[in-house]
């Protein structure tokens, strides 16, 4: 067997910019973002889909970028934490994490912000969860639902109360704005 196979070309649309890369087939989407595009906001935690630090959106949905290959994403729209907001213009979710102390060391935070942002959209679209009492209606936003939906993002500092508070504050604000 060859030591390595020739690189393959793939074009990703990352945070609105088209990027064409030459990558070894083994390069994960996570490594492509971090090592090829220098978008190091997305973090490598476990590299096995267990911690959620690498969460990004692909075509609007959150996934673990460590468990997918860059070459599989030809033409896909990728949104990373850098596409969510900037230090000068943070998103509501990023601002809420700061306000609510939703982190300590900060390593899991980009993944938490990505998941938190996605979870609110999943609520808006009426997705059920394991703890939803009634499958046929839309689930209420509450602590139990939030904890279940965020269970794919671990925080070793255990900043969970602040994380919940941050996401809840954005959910409440969004709901008030809609009313």
């Amino acid at each position: 067997m060859a030591e390595r196979n020739p690189p393959q070309s793939v074009t990703l649309n990352v945070n609105g910019t088209s990027e064409t890369l030459e990558v070894d087939t083994r390069v994960t989407l996570l490594d492509a973002l971090r090592d090829h595009l220098n978008l190091t906001g997305t973090k490598k935690g476990c590299d096995h889909g267990q911690c959620g630090a690498c969460t990004v959106m692909v075509n609007g949905r959150r996934i673990n970028s460590c468990l997918t290959l860059a070459v599989m994403h030809e033409g896909d729209e990728i949104t990373t934490i850098e596409g969510i907001g900037t230090p000068e213009a943070p998103s509501d979710m990023q601002r809420a994490f700061v306000t609510c102390d939703g982190f300590q060391c900060g390593y899991c935070t980009p993944g938490q912000v990505m998941s938190g942002t996605a979870v609110l959209e999943e609520f808006r679209q009426g997705w059920p969860s394991h703890v939803s009492k009634d499958l046929t209606g839309n689930a209420d936003f509450n602590d139990e639902e939030l904890a279940e939906r965020m269970s794919g993002n671990l925080c070793r500092c255990s900043a969970y109360p602040g994380i919940r508070q941050a996401i809840t504050s954005v959910a409440t604000k969004t709901k008030e704005a809609a009313e």
Binding site: R61, I63, H130, S132, R149, G152, N153
Partner: peptide, 23 residues
């Protein structure tokens, strides 16, 4: 599925995480 085969929805929702179920 939610209306007529809820046991399947429940089984799926009991598995993995939100990110993994999307993929």
């Amino acid at each position: 599925i939610r209306r007529n085969y809820p046991v399947l929805s429940r089984a799926l929702l009991a598995g993995a995480s939100g990110q993994l179920r999307n993929k």
